[in-house]
């Protein structure tokens, strides 16, 4: 139990650091940047404390906002994703997800991929809608959501494979 907590704290700090130092400076085609810091929320233990997840996601988003000068958009998107995570689990893995021990950082099955896809999509739609804040940019919002989702998923999967514990 204690080691799981330590792993989570370590993940929280490392993902934030990578996001701020490297990925925030990536601007494909001028406006697309991936947000792999979401992996913290995605990889949080399935049966872990839910209130803890919601609160730590809020902090995660707030720190991102501080660095991006963006008010509260990352915090909002992260809190919404953290709250609806069990529903996305139910959607991707079926009703009995609580009784399985799902480990996302093993081989990539269609269920795991759909879970990551839906999570990232939900977060990005909220994020870019709040960022534009006006309906006349609806096309822009959809475009940014689409491209950023693709890049976030690619970088997330690469990171998952990189930190995967080696089997012996």
């Amino acid at each position: 139990m204690n080691s799981a907590l330590l792993v989570n704290i370590f993940r929280f700090i490392m993902l934030l650091a990578i996001q701020i130092v490297i990925f925030n400076n990536m601007n494909f085609l001028g406006y697309i940047s991936p947000f792999p810091y979401l992996l913290y929320i995605i990889l949080y233990p399935v049966n872990g404390n839910r209130a803890g997840l919601i609160f730590s996601s809020f902090l995660l988003g707030l720190i991102m906002d501080m660095f991006c000068n963006s008010g509260g958009i990352h915090a909002t998107a992260c809190v919404i994703l953290a709250y609806y995570r069990p529903y996305i689990f139910k959607f991707s893995f079926g009703l009995s997800y609580e009784y399985q021990t799902i480990r996302l950082n093993e081989s990539l099955t269609p269920e795991r991929f759909s879970f990551i896809l839906v999570s990232v999509l939900l977060h990005h739609i909220v994020l870019f809608t709040l960022e534009a804040f006006q309906f006349k940019f609806i096309l822009d919002i959809l475009l940014r959501t689409l491209f950023s989702t693709i890049f976030t998923i690619i970088t997330s999967i690469i990171i998952i494979y990189l930190i995967k514990p080696h089997k012996r």
Binding site: I54, F55, F58, A75, T76, V79
Partner: peptide, 18 residues
Amino acid sequence: LLFLLLLGISLALTIQSH
């Protein structure tokens, strides 16, 4: 309740930032 509270705070920050 925790979700609604934090959502309220972050939305307030967002609106304020605009």
